[in-house]
Write a protein that binds this DNA or RNA. Structure first.
Lengths: 416, 416
DNA sequence: AGTCGTTAGTCGCGACCACAAACTAAGTCG
DNA sequence: CGACTTAGTTTGTGGTCGCGACTAACGACT
């Protein structure tokens, strides 16, 4: 990630690192005084004054008056993040919608757009056009507000692979080796903005890491129930991508020999047991319909399953218990291998949580070797279906926090 | 790992980082000239001269005469690592032996000691006495050779947990919440040497990462077949420990519901299917013996299994095929989740490789979602049963390479 | 009101380090 | 023997942090 591949360090790196350290501290502790930053970071008071001055001239930090708490001594000038000026955009392409989440530097939502589309009908090229249009409109809005967009991250439900900016395989979209980033940039007016691309579950994990209920948990696993089952793993605060982008592909680990047939052709895959398709098939086979059009109204079908469970329908609740048990078994494998502090369940698992979670927790505990789940908390995602787009936006902010993507050196562009 | 928890950086860090960068480059490219180091690291020629001079006065690098290749221009003075002066010690406690591997800074073996003991009979305290005695002798030997020991790492077949220097649980040794590092230091004369502690499979992975056939593979998974099945995972060149030290605990992931009973009380655990106990039980049940003394002559029993397989005994080979298939299934889960570039099998898997590997490879390929195993190479460990001790020693060298454990600033102690 | 004590923040200096450019060194080639 | 080439050193500069002294701004106490 560093520009200098060898890892060699010069003074610009020192400065940038310390700018990021201070920024991170202020983000976490705001409002806080320079003295507190100095004490908290270990840097010298004078250095902090200098760094804060730079952050202020760049428009990232502002002074917000004196300390409220009446204490002895000179009152402190409090600092806080001024996130307004810089923003980051997260985009998500999915089977039946595009979404865009713009956040500012303080990670507040600036805009949240959701647009239903039929990705499969549009085709890859059609999707890019619509996606770029969405991005252009969002960036235009930012320009009108005199804000700068630092980068765009696109989330795709598929495998990203090694070649830069290319979607290797996205079966649910019908994409195959599609150079998304290149095509997207062609459609975009702006050729300078930083673009990146990642798997939706990976970015969902980043979203949880930055903004979820258990945010800033250094080791967390995110599991999302959709048509497939996606996984994202954060280790020591960094996303685990694996050597060729297949990291965290939990959907097709085999849990049951001679289990139900999976879309991948194998049997007993995790997602063949707990994916939406399996849930509907088991809990409400009358809704399963033909395989030709199963993707359109999944949300409605899941809602119907929830309704029946709520009403106490025996077959439905029994099926959901089975699903929960398999979810627990699969999760136990993740806990044994990654030993995270948090396991976060998203997607349709949240909707069906009242019925699947009790058996899932039971089975999880039974199959985890570490006592007390190794200290792992199990929680439901609160980010809903914007997790991936929001995570994409957050991943850019995260990169700034860790000094991997420095802010523009001179705060030239914007107003004044 | 960094001393400054906030991540703030000052000059000493810059210098130390760049010293490590240069050291790493010379280790990799030796013999090489200052000019090559400058080109390879991106640092300035003058800076390299300065840093190299410091490394030379510290006794870490030496000039080894002019370049051999007759080229135009002034001939280069070649540099190489002078590993002799500094060493690191890896110790391993296991069920039936203690071992010690001392390596120098160039990671050459300086001494390799192996000592049979019955750990269970000795008890934890008795083991510490023997282990410290081994360490004292090894360090005395280094003192006589005017070498400095930078650190000691102890490998234990068990869970390390969070509390510093404590073995949380080592069932095969009969240890429970044993403060190994403290006890060890009490026994050792030297109170200044850095001590660390880790799981044997984790350190085996480090050993493979530093010195194995596929060394310096940034993402690798190491799997060792012993009484249990241990796993170690390297992600982006760093060991994954998990949030409370249970990371990579592959032994008890459930592969088969209602499978054979495991020592942990569950059924169908990975190690209940492919651990040594299971192998002997299936392949040569006449050798299984009572559970009271199964640990003493495992090597002999495994050798006997291999002999029978060699001889073409049908039951033996059939059993080994089954073991191989489960090994493949378990490994497939690891490949799907971690997507490493290398999977390395150690311990008794190596001895039995001719029979278990063909079915393992077949099953592995069948259960891995990424085509072509996601580019993962599957290899047998070449480090043998010293993997953990050697990995422990290497982990100290690795820490120096990544500037986490700086070498003594002044090369004072040793002989002129 | 004035002084003291306390805490916040700035200023000036020195140390350190990497960098750039000029320079020296030691060869080959024609 | 001089031009050319590459290696490495010297010297000076700029940038960054740490340190200690300083100023600033308040409450408390007399």
């Amino acid at each position: 990630m560093r520009p200098v591949s060898s890892g060699a360090v010069d003074f610009i790196d020192v400065r940038e690192t310390n700018l990021a350290v201070v920024l991170r501290f202020i983000r976490r502790e705001a409002p806080c005084s320079r003295a507190e930053v100095a004490a908290g970071t270990g840097l010298n008071k004078a250095t902090i004054s200098n760094i804060v001055a730079e952050l202020i001239t760049r428009g990232i930090v502002v002074e917000v008056g004196a300390s409220e708490e009446r204490r002895i001594g000179r009152p402190a000038v409090m600092l806080t993040l001024d996130g307004r000026r810089f923003t980051a955009l997260g985009l998500e392409v999915n089977v039946d919608y595009l979404s865009a989440v713009m956040v500012d530097l303080a990670e507040r939502d600036v805009l949240t757009w959701h647009e239903p589309v039929q990705a499969a009908e549009l085709g890859a090229e059609g999707c890019v056009v619509r996606l770029a249009d969405l991005a252009r409109r969002a960036m235009g809005e930012m320009a009108r507000q005199h804000r700068e967009v630092l980068g765009i991250t696109i989330a795709v439900p598929g495998l990203i692979g090694t070649s830069d900016g290319e979607v290797a395989e996205a079966p649910n979209l019908g994409w195959h080796e599609f150079p998304l980033v290149d095509r997207f940039r062609e459609q975009l007016d702006d050729s300078s903005v930083a673009l990146s691309l990642d798997n939706d579950a990976n970015l969902g994990a980043v979203g949880e890491y930055r903004r979820g209920a258990l945010a800033h948990t250094q080791n967390l696993v995110y599991l999302t129930g959709e048509v497939g089952v996606g996984g994202g793993v954060i280790i020591n605060g960094a996303l685990m991508r694996g050597s060729s982008g297949y990291g965290g592909e939990v959907g097709h680990i085999t849990l049951m020999q001679d289990g139900p047939l999976c879309g991948c052709g194998r049997r007993g895959c995790f997602e063949a047991l707990v994916g939406i398709g399996s849930i509907i098939q088991q809990a409400a086979p009358d809704l399963a319909g033909s395989t030709a059009q199963p993707l359109t109204d999944l949300a409605a079908k899941v809602a119907e399953v929830a309704r029946r469970a709520e009403a106490g329908d025996a077959r439905t609740t029994a099926a959901l218990v089975r699903v929960g048990e398999w979810l627990g078994r699969g999760s136990a494998i993740l806990l044994n291998l990654f030993n995270p502090q948090a396991l976060i369940l998203g997607g349709y698992f949240v909707t069906l949580a009242p019925w699947i979670m009790p058996p899932a927790r039971r089975t999880l505990a039974a199959h985890t070797i570490a006592p007390n789940l190794g200290g792992c908390q199990v929680a439901l995602s609160t980010l809903g279906f914007t997790a991936a787009a929001r995570g994409g936006a957050s991943s850019i902010i995260d990169a700034i926090d860790t000094a991997r993507l420095p802010l523009p050196r001179s705060g030239s562009a914007a107003h004044r």
